[in-house]
């Protein structure tokens, strides 16, 4: 996983709530078998609309997506995270997320930051007034900075550590293998097996 420390880039204001993962990447594109190659599938059903935020000249090349409440609800498809990353997004800022999407994003190094809706509104207003206005997402100081406003955010310390150093979650768990073996020895013998 690519580490995430501090990222500064331009932002795309997505003034919508309840953007489910079917909108982020429609199911018909989830038949591919790779983690990459999904950039063109991102928001595929909205991209035909010339007024859609990613089609507006000033927001092309944005690396921070700023969305409304409950971004990434619905299907567990990790394609939603891969499509956002393939398109070039490094971070998402929103007041709330679907739980599974949030976990998926943080395991892939796409930093999903939770800030109050008021802070989202401020960023929307700033980057709509001037699309070149940079937004900084700072994982070291746990801050979002935009147009002179500084908003603090919180993140699980384990997750933060893993993101800052690009650590492999599986390798970290496998360090506890002895404990897994011990737990397995205590499992009830009547629990089902699949073969």
């Amino acid at each position: 996983m690519r580490p995430f420390t501090v990222h500064t880039g331009t932002a795309a204001p997505l003034r919508r709530s309840n953007v489910d993962t079917d909108q982020i990447i429609p199911a018909r594109f989830c038949v591919r078998s790779t983690r990459s190659g999904h950039a063109d599938s991102l928001f595929a059903d909205w991209r035909d609309d010339p007024g859609f935020v990613l089609n507006r000249p000033g927001h092309r090349g944005a690396t921070v997506l700023v969305a409304g409440n409950d971004f990434g609800i619905g299907s567990s498809r990790e394609y939603a995270v891969w499509a956002l990353q393939d398109y070039g997004f490094r971070a998402v800022i929103a007041p709330r997320y679907g739980d599974i999407f949030r976990e998926n994003s943080l395991l892939n190094g796409l930093l999903t930051v939770t800030v109050p809706i008021e802070a989202v509104e401020e960023i929307w207003a700033a980057v709509e007034a001037d699309p070149a206005e940079p937004v900084t997402v700072d994982l070291e100081r746990l801050q979002v900075r935009c147009a002179g406003n500084v908003t603090a955010f919180d993140l699980d310390p384990d997750v933060r550590e893993r993101l800052l150093h690009g650590l492999d979650a599986i390798a970290m768990t496998l360090r506890e293998e002895e404990l897994i073996v011990r737990y397995e020895a205590s499992r009830h013998p009547a629990l089902p097996t699949t073969r």
Binding site: R35, S76, R77, E78, V81, I100, F101, E103, N104, L107, N108, D156, D158, A169, I170, M172, T173, L174, E177, I180, E184
Partner: peptide, 20 residues
């Protein structure tokens, strides 16, 4: 509960998940 592909890989490799 539902999980994503990275967590699937984690469960396949370790039969565990780290969660809050």
């Amino acid at each position: 509960f539902g999980i994503g592909a990275s967590q699937v890989e984690h469960v396949l490799a370790t039969q565990t998940l780290q969660l809050r």
